[in-house]
Amino acid sequence: MTDTNVQATSVVADPEIRPVINGGQRSGRGRTIRFMQAVFGNRGAAIGFILVLTLVLVAIFASWIAPFDSDQMGAGKRLSPPDASHWFGTDEFGRDMFSRVVFGARLTIQVGVIAVSISLTIGMLLGLIGGYAGGWLEKILMRSVDVLFSFTETLIALAAVAVLGPSLTNAMIAVGIAAIPFYARVAYSVTLVERNRPYFEAAVAAGAGHMRLLFRHLLPNIIPPLIVVATLGVSAAVLAAAGLSFLGLGAQPPSPEWGAMLSSGRDYFNRAPWIMLYPGLAIMITVLAFNLLGDGIREALDPRQRNT
């Protein structure tokens, strides 16, 4: 026997040992606390959480934090570099870049939440129903999802915007629609796993109807893995919406959307790189924050810990 064959890690995963090592009885609140500990025990996840929290606070208190209004022209000299009064400098209209980035957080949070809500809700329902129903309904639903899935999300988003017309709201909807196939596939595969577990069979054997099986048994059990995907999905949505705005298909000037700001800063990049630098950094940090947090939640929800 060589060492590659030895599954040393199986000791803790062994369901026989685990419950006893961890003690027989534990409270539900204890589980939540342990979950939080697991999230924060991971340094990356903790950083991600703090960043996301900061972002949310900045968005909420934008009007208090920002020294100027986001659209106030001539708040300073045009294209002046960062200094003590304009931390991130000013743009071609003399608008304070710091204020614009701060107000931009609001739009970004909106984009993330709304786009992900659209794709998560619809995708989850499609996947859930497809995985539960089986038969022709499953085939129709999942084959259509597969067809959509074979186009890249950007393409679907572009098509959607082309139909709806360019605006930030439409960009959110477009990004949301584009990601539906992804969420549907995840929800579908998780549903297939859950519906083969004995507790589901037990509910069928007890005579439970469709609604009860779908929403009382399957749904609560497929939500945790989807939360992970959704957290990671926020960063993808933010990036996609910024991309659309950058192309001029999303937020329109003078909206302080980070992607739109990047776009309008292009012409001045040589003279005033800060116009692109700070919105770009803000996008990067936001994406990183949600990715770190998502990874952390995924690790914390790892079946080895979840099942105890």
Binding site: A8, T9, V11, V12, E16, P19
Partner: peptide, 22 residues
């Protein structure tokens, strides 16, 4: 029975206890 330590003993002998947590 489960959790009596019978398996852990032999893993310890073989130096196969995952560290951490063990």
């Amino acid at each position: 029975e489960s959790g009596s330590g019978k398996s852990v003993t032999s893993l310890a002998i073989m130096g196969l206890i995952p560290n951490p947590p063990g």
